[in-house]
Simulated assay, not measured.
Amino acid sequence: MKKVILSLLFLGVMASCSTSAMAADACEVVLCMYGKTTGNSGSSECHSAERAFFNIVKENKHGFLPDHTADARKSFLLECDSADPAAISQVISKYGRVRG
């Protein structure tokens, strides 16, 4: 019984560590995507942030849902409290409904 509990605890810790290490910071994504929107392509440091943004995709059995994808991407960007809402709106209007 102790081995089962310890194994589950260990797996839980490993899952939370790998998720947080791979998760992109919303503020970094806002900064990079806003730069992309205004024509200032980010350096190689923005590739992971852009990938994180474009990996947010909503689909159903009929395919890609652009409005739901835009809403999900906007919700993610709004996690950055210091981001300008106008900048977020500009990013979403240009890239929110774009597929990958």
Rank of each mutant, 00 (worst) to 15 (best):
A26W: 03
H47M: 15
T38K: 15
V4N: 10
E28W: 09
A83I: 00
G35H: 05
P66T: 01
S82M: 08
G96I: 01
S82W: 10
Y34G: 01
Y34E: 10
L31G: 09
D25N: 12
G42F: 00
A21Q: 10
H62C: 12
S41H: 14
C17P: 02
A52H: 05
V98L: 11
L65D: 02
L65E: 03
D81W: 12
A83L: 07
L77D: 09
R97K: 12
A21F: 14
K2V: 10
A86S: 14
M1H: 08
V57N: 00
F53Y: 08
L31H: 15
Y95L: 00
G63T: 04
D25A: 06
L6N: 07
K74T: 07
C17W: 13
C17Q: 12
Y34K: 09
G42L: 04
I92T: 01
S20W: 15
S18K: 15
A86I: 11
D25T: 06
T37A: 08
A52C: 05
I92W: 03
F53S: 06
A21E: 15
I5Q: 08
N60M: 01
G12F: 08
S16A: 14
V57W: 01
A87R: 14
L6F: 11
K2N: 08
K2A: 13
C32D: 07
E50M: 04
A24D: 08
Y95M: 02
C27T: 02
C27G: 02
G100C: 00
I56T: 01
M33F: 03
K3M: 14
R97W: 00
S93H: 07
S75I: 07
R99G: 00
A49V: 04
I88P: 03
D71I: 07
G96R: 00
S44K: 11
F10T: 08
A21K: 15
A24E: 12
V30L: 01
M22P: 12
L77F: 06
K94Y: 04
E50V: 03
D81E: 13
C17F: 10
S16T: 12
P66M: 04
D67L: 13
A49S: 06
K74D: 03
G96M: 02
F10C: 14
K36V: 04
T38C: 11
L31Q: 15
L9D: 10
S93Q: 12
F54H: 02
H68C: 10
Y95C: 01
S93M: 11
E59G: 06
V13L: 11
V57M: 01
T19L: 13
M33I: 04
M14K: 10
H47Q: 15
E45W: 05
V91D: 05
G42W: 02
S89L: 04
D81F: 12
C46E: 07
S20Q: 15
